[in-house]
Design a protein around this nucleic acid. Structure first.
Length: 666
RNA sequence: GCGCCCGUAGCUCAGUUGGAUAGAGCGUUUGGCUACGAACCAAAAGGUCGCACGUUCGAGUCGUGCCGGGCGCACCA
């Protein structure tokens, strides 16, 4: 429903309150009644007014009486058929169904675009480039990608980053593996990474997955070997030596694998920002100056943090607490030996995101992805000229999709950044925290681990469901179903559809949960195509499309004939019990814009996922109740076709927001 | 000890700024394909919304205190 329409009603209502009761209200609550028979919009405002009137005049008024007065004052709003008082004092409005319906047929669900000078920088995926991606990583990527789609749909300008920690401990561990556990020269590693193979388990990221867990065991056997990790990490950070070269090669190759995996799920990026550049281009040194100048960080000359630069805890109301506990929340940014902590480096990186650092990366083209988008990557040495590439960074706010375990460091990063850049728009920046994916007892058993309850995945132990394995299984299962139903299609086409179904199943499975809910991954549930699943929603859209295919006329053709329908036919469509249920479907289809706004405001893609499922469910009931093509009344048939078309459009749009395609057939 | 998240049907989970009779999927039982293909639909059974106070005309939703589970709180990243 267009927002301006609802806002107009609100304003009118506020005016009536002013005229009738002389009360100034800034806003009124508005909601959708639980049943269509009760109306299309409900205002519980009379309850609050009763209270206010009593406070102002001492006069006791019944909420129903107030609602009645308001209803009388609300006459003649275009699009509103009538107002009713219901329950204990609800003011319910009924729309002019025919009018709204015709409006919806021409409306496209896009929100008013925001200021053009604002740009959100969304960081997601950011998998350590040392092993294959697993289902937990996919949750991050799907959440991030879907959030981006929704933000763009409501008019935000978005830049998508994928942070590559190519100089971290995890990469160092695989380098240790190739140097000491399963010794190989760089050329031999290259041979493994670049060997031509169609076998999934021979791909380089799978190879490293196994090696990484072997390294973990190898450390366990002799803790002294951890020295080797520290030395390797140091060499990688320093750069310009054979160890660093090995790390560079491995991480670049694994990043390639990750991008391929994510492409299968229609996920893409604008820029891969690498930690090696943040190190080599001395981002921290610059940020350090900025932080010192503003006084956010101070040098401790005594106490247990003596010799460190720390970010002091915010002054809370509790000044009475002991000295010791006050210093608990102080965050060390520079250690007493002069090295910088992770938090410090991340503050520097985020200042860059906002264009507040005074330094920039160099950039080069990495690849053109499956969508045809140019993916860029940072480099330390002179890259593409600024004139021939996008201007990266300089965002007005950042959004980071990172698991909930990073909440504390993330809060510190934002605190440090806000101390330097306290633009109110920066305050929108947020850590989009999501809970982890664990393995259900059944899933763990399938992977060889016996357990009573859910089990945490562990890259270090090599325990987890690899993303490509799962997608392969989904595609194989979907292909069986497609072949059973559409033997007439060419194999390539069958596979294409199976792929679309697999993506729908996986993405919906990860989006049906709220961000803060732990997902206990279960194969049976994730591999299902029935019930509350992505394919169920696709099926509803495909059914709608089938009607038009059988009809032999495109939807646009039907829309052109709308004007010729008699007003009586339109009135009949929405009258009676059957009319109510058709109207409730139409009205729900019209609410996509509201849902988008809700999802965007809370960075919660689940709202769109749940909406799409509910709309599909309602459509399936409609489909079952009305056999459109055999409808004898031609005008009514046209109108039913238009309803089907409206729902079809909104379903496909909602699916697109979720990163799910609608197959031609299924 | 401090902070955050979770607790809703047998299981897995939704539940927008507090609103009308708390929903869905799976599972169980039963029914519906010579229709736009059943990856669907219909029906039944299943609830002290962890517990107790409080605020409110109204609490699954807000506040306080408990109980139970998970995760953070490094001169690690």
């Amino acid at each position: 429903m267009s927002l301006s329409f609802a806002n107009e009603i609100r304003q009118r209502l506020l005016a009536v309150v002013r005229e009738q009761y002389g009360l100034e209200m800034t806003d009124v609550a508005m909601e959708v009644p639980p049943k269509t028979e009760l109306g299309d919009l409900a205002f519980p405002v009379a309850f609050e007014l009763a209270k206010r009137i009593k406070a102002a005049t001492g006069e006791k008024k019944n909420p129903r009486e107030i609602a009645t007065t308001l209803a009388e004052g609300l006459s003649a709003i275009p699009g509103v058929a009538r107002a009713e008082v219901a329950g204990a004092g609800y003011l319910n409005l009924f729309f002019d169904r025919a009018r709204i319906f015709s409006q919806l047929l021409t409306e496209t669900p896009a929100a008013a675009s925001r200021a053009l000078d604002s740009k959100l920088i969304v960081e997601h995926t950011s998998i350590n480039p040392n092993k294959a991606a697993h289902i937990g990583h996919v949750r991050n990527a799907v959440l991030g990608d879907t959030t981006v789609r929704i933000l763009k749909a409501v008019g935000e300008k978005v830049e998508i980053h994928n942070y590559i920690d190519n100089t971290g401990v995890q990469v160092a561990d695989v380098v240790v593996g190739f140097l000491h556990v399963d010794p190989r020269t760089l050329d031999e590693v290259r041979a493994i990474a670049e060997r031509p193979t169609t076998r999934r388990d021979e791909s380089f990221d799978y190879f490293c997955w196994d090696l990484y867990s072997r390294v973990g065991q190898w450390y366990e056997e002799d803790k002294a070997r951890l020295e080797l990790r520290a030395r390797t990490l140091h060499e990688i950070e320093a750069g310009g030596n054979p160890t660093a070269e090995m790390g560079e090669y491995i991480s670049a190759k694994i990043v390639d694998c990750h991008l391929d995996t994510m492409s299968r799920l229609d996920i893409s990026y604008d820029l891969l920002a690498r930690e090696s550049e943040i190190l080599h281009l001395k981002f921290w040194a610059q940020a350090f100056e900025n932080l010192k100048n503003t006084g956010v960080i101070v040098f401790e000359t005594e106490g247990r943090n003596k010799g460190c630069w720390v970010m002091r805890a915010e002054e809370g109301g509790e000044a009475t607490s002991e000295e010791e506990s006050e210093h608990d929340a102080d965050k060390i940014i520079v250690r007493s030996n002069g090295t910088v902590t992770y938090t410090g480096k991340d503050i520097a990186y985020h200042l860059w995101k906002l264009g507040k650092l005074g330094l920039d990366f160099y950039y080069r083209k990495l690849r053109t992805d499956h969508r045809g988008n140019q993916v860029w990557i940072t480099t330390s040495e002179a890259g593409e000229a600024a004139a021939t590439r996008p201007l990266f960074g300089n965002g007005t706010a950042f959004l980071n999709v990172i698991d909930v375990g990073q909440s504390y460091p993330q809060a510190n990063v934002k605190r440090g950044v806000m101390a330097i850049d306290h633009d109110e728009r920066v305050a929108r920046s947020a850590h989009l925290a999501y809970e982890k994916v664990t393995l259900s007892a059944d899933a763990a058993r399938e992977l060889g681990v016996e357990s009573e309850g859910a089990v945490s995945m562990s890259g270090r132990k090599g325990l987890g469901v690899k993303a490509d394995d799962l997608i392969d299984r989904l595609e194989a299962n979907a292909l069986v179903e497609v072949q059973a139903r559409h033997a007439e299609l060419a194999e390539a086409e069958q596979k294409r559809i199976a792929h679309q179904i697999a993506v729908a199943a996986l993405r919906y499975f990860l989006l049906k949960f709220t961000r803060t809910s732990i997902i206990a991954f279960d194969f049976k549930e994730a591999l299902s195509f029935e019930g509350e699943t992505g394919p169920y929603i696709q099926y509803a859209a495909v059914r709608a499309n089938n009607i038009f295919r059988k009809l032999g006329r495109p939807p646009a053709d039907i829309r052109d004939g709308f004007g010729a329908c008699a007003p009586e036919a339109l009135a009949a469509l929405f009258s009676g019990e059957t009319g109510n249920s058709i109207w409730s479907l139409v009205y729900f289809a019209g609410r996509l814009t509201d849902i988008m706004q809700l999802a965007a405001a809370g960075f919660e893609p689940t709202h769109v996922a749940k909406y799409a499922f509910q709309l599909a469910k309602q459509f399936n009931i409609f489909y079952h109740d009305h056999h459109i093509l055999s409808e004898p009344d031609e005008a009514r048939r046209t109108l039913l076709l238009l309803v089907a078309d409206l729902v079809r459009c909104r379903l496909e749009q909602a699916l697109a927001l979720l990163g799910i395609e609608t197959p031609e057939k299924m």
